[in-house]
């Protein structure tokens, strides 16, 4: 199966290892991964700040880039959600309505794609230790991908998943919120890292680099000995070809 990867700007610039794991994982699962270079950003930072016009400029670039894709897969629930919204955003735009809708329909968050398109719910991988899963808000509530990552993680060998107190609460990232409302964001992430500390785990696993950058940044400031991992990295670990 041919899969077109949307790496997201955070992965491209800061978390190349997440991108690499995603590619390796998809290849091991039998996909052929395609990566059009025209891709940049889904437009969410501008869109969620109210700059619809500027965001649309970025969105059009992405629509063009992914015109030929069969499936667009991305290791981010939040960016997948943004792409799924394109259809609504361009609904009244004669020139872009059909193309944007087509992109919305063929876009999948990584774990959603693995479980619901590839039909795989168990991937032979190993990670020794205890972990909590951070449920990202956009992915869980708005994209509706809730059980897929948990299902995949439950089948990772030697990994013990533990509950996280107030797991449903946002970590305080919120894109530009984290710099526009830095003080509030700080309090929110501190409550999250306290819950993580209380859970007494080796890893925090998530499926969105924005949240992980936020939580990881705070854990590092607190010098907490907890490793932050993207689910693609976990599923790609110890997985034989």
């Amino acid at each position: 199966m041919r899969v077109t990867l949307f790496s997201t700007c955070l992965v491209d610039l800061f978390y190349s290892n997440v991108g690499i794991s995603t590619v390796e994982l998809l290849e091991k699962l039998g996909c052929e991964v395609d990566y059009p270079k025209g891709q940049i950003c889904c437009g969410q930072p501008a869109y969620n700040s109210g700059y619809k016009k500027d965001a649309k400029t970025a969105m059009k670039q992405l629509i063009k880039t992914f015109d030929d894709a069969e499936y667009v897969v991305t290791p981010s629930g939040s960016c997948a959600l943004m792409l799924r919204e394109y259809g609504h955003i361009f609904a009244d735009d004669e020139k872009w309505a059909a193309r944007s809708k087509a992109l919305s329909v063929k876009t999948y968050e990584l774990t959603d794609f693995i479980v619901n398109v590839l039909g795989i719910d168990s991937i032979p991988s190993t990670l020794q230790g205890k972990a909590v899963f951070h449920t990202s808000c956009h992915m869980t509530r708005l994209l509706g991908v809730k059980e897929e990552p948990k299902l995949l993680l439950s089948n990772v060998e030697k990994l013990e998943m533990k509950p996280l107190a107030n797991a449903q609460n946002c970590c305080g990232f919120g894109g530009t919120f984290s710099v526009k409302m830095g003080d509030i964001s700080a309090e929110m992430v501190q409550e999250k890292t306290r819950s993580i500390q209380e859970a007494d785990v080796d890893y925090v696993i998530g499926a969105d680099c924005g949240c992980l950058m936020n939580i990881g940044g705070r854990l590092k400031r607190e010098k907490q000995d907890v490793e932050v991992l993207h689910i693609a990295e976990v599923l790609n670990r110890g997985m034989g070809v």
């Binding site: 978390y15 830095g182 705070r218």
Partner: peptide, 26 residues
């Protein structure tokens, strides 16, 4: 603006090579 972030959190560094550079090689 980054100060709003680094007041409470570490900010990650840009990698020497971007993911797209790895992907080209790959």
């Amino acid at each position: 603006m980054m100060k709003e972030w680094t007041n409470s959190k570490e900010f990650p560094t840009l990698k020497t090579s971007r993911f797209r550079d790895w992907m080209s090689k790959h």
